[in-house]
Design a protein around this nucleic acid. Structure first.
Lengths: 141, 141
DNA sequence: AGAATTGTGGGGAAAAGTGGGGAAATAGGG
DNA sequence: CCCTATTTCCCCACTTTTCCCCACAATTCT
């Protein structure tokens, strides 16, 4: 389980630390992928990634469908691991996609971790909070 | 079950004690989150938190919905536990959100505990009392 | 009144955040 | 094919923050 929201510096080499609590749940390495739909980088623990990709592949009904899925999901994915300081290096393509400059917001999102630029995160956060309170109100939890 | 209203000092390091009666119900650690809707910090016992987050996640209808919800719920949450003196440390972001300076009002709210700044609590309390009496009137209790 | 528990404060050790240097690997050009 | 230039990766170093422990004052309970 990942939670919390942490701002981190991205150095000139494109390295970002993840919070120690996250690292401990990702000792087996991580997969970086484009956030599905959102302008962010998704970071999956290796085990969760295989679980996810398997379940996706199983749902593709046609061959063309499956190929498209493979390109979209696996085409942008990178496997990596932590250096001695607990950092991962972000490929330029992903950093560019998420618009991340010298600061990244690391967000725990239950099963995975997301990396956002400051601006995109600010926007996403407000909209997410609005939606959350709507859901909570309507279901009266 | 949590009752009562206790004022406590927040020291320079952002530490707040909780009443001993509360601690004893939170030995497994706690999750800090933004109060939903109100400007306060919500403190959930670990077990109650998982119960709550599971029930919320189950209500998302679409995948995009679920991701947004996960961000809103998990993004603002922090897991922590008590030090030897029965205190928890509040992350700066949450303290700032709730406007808590050097004093926090600890309020028992049945399933969870809430932390308020003096000012916000005063306002919330009067409005809650007014509304409560209105509600009671309207139901003719 | 005495003892134990609780509120409050602070100090020191350990860990985490940040930056940079050098060796190995890769790629490109002669 | 070899040499050189560039990039990537791993390690080292420093600064800051966090965490854990200790100490004292005040309150409560017996």
């Amino acid at each position: 389980m990942f939670f919390g929201e942490y701002p981190y510096k991205v150095d000139e080499k494109g390295r970002v630390p993840l919070p120690p609590k996250f690292r401990r749940q990702m000792k087996e390495g991580v997969i970086l992928a484009k956030g599905m739909g959102e302008k962010c980088i998704a970071v999956y623990p290796a085990a969760e990634w295989t679980r996810l990709s398997d379940s996706l592949a199983a749902k593709a009904v046609t061959q063309a469908n499956l190929r498209k899925l493979n390109r979209a999901i696996f085409g942008s994915a990178f496997s990596t691991s932590f250096d001695g300081q607990g950092r991962i290096t972000l490929p330029y393509s992903l950093r560019d996609y998420a618009g991340i400059g010298d600061t990244a917001i690391v967000v725990g999102a239950n099963k995975c971790v997301e990396l956002w630029s400051e601006d995109e995160w600010k926007a996403e956060k407000t909209s997410a909070e609005e939606q959350a309170s709507q859901i909570i109100e309507s279901f009266g939890v």
